[in-house]
Amino acid sequence: MTQADLPAVMSIERATFPLDAWSEGMMRGELAEMPRSRHYLVALVDGEIIGYAGLAAAADQADVQTIAVLEKHQGTGVGGAMLTELLAEAGRRGAREIFLEVRADNPRAQAVYRHYGFEEIGTRRRYYDDGTDAIMMRRNLDD
């Protein structure tokens, strides 16, 4: 992902996360940390950005910062492909485990993460702006 991708990325961000979308400034801040501690990518179909994902990594730990796919492309494997790349990048950076938060009211995303080996480790109460809990998940990368 580059700064030039931000108009398309922000459109997907607002559509996917209408209640708690990141601001463009937040996303620019994330990109400013690439490649030092961040890794962001976009998914393309016929030259159109249809999804994006981001990773934060420090020492032996990494965090999935975000994954979003346009609704009409959800369920096609795009999100899984981006998650696979984030897992690979975390490994390349020496991470031994990777964490994420997922909305408690998003069973579809939770199922995807479980499919990729993530396990629930706790709950962050009222984590999201609308008061929804976040389920914390972890995957050991040494497996």
Rank of each mutant, 00 (worst) to 15 (best):
T2N: 13
A4D: 14
D5A: 15
D5I: 07
P7V: 07
A8Q: 12
V9C: 14
I12D: 12
E13Y: 08
T16E: 11
T16C: 15
F17N: 00
P18T: 15
L19G: 12
W22C: 01
S23A: 02
E24G: 02
E24L: 08
M26N: 01
R28L: 02
E30W: 05
E30M: 05
E30D: 12
A32Q: 13
A32E: 13
S37N: 08
R38T: 11
V42G: 09
V42A: 14
L44I: 06
L44G: 01
I49W: 08
Y52R: 02
Y52S: 12
A53Y: 03
A53F: 10
L55Y: 14
A58N: 03
A58D: 05
A59L: 10
D60Q: 03
Q65H: 01
Q65P: 00
Q65S: 06
V69I: 15
V69G: 03
L70I: 13
K72C: 05
H73D: 11
G79I: 04
G80R: 14
T84L: 04
G91E: 07
R92G: 11
F99N: 05
L100E: 09
E101Q: 13
R108L: 03
R108G: 00
A109M: 11
A109E: 14
Q110E: 10
A111C: 11
E120A: 04
I121S: 02
I121R: 13
I121Q: 06
G122L: 08
Y128S: 04
Y128E: 03
D130W: 15
I135F: 08
I135M: 04
M136N: 10
M137I: 08
R138F: 05
L141G: 01
D142P: 00
D143Q: 03
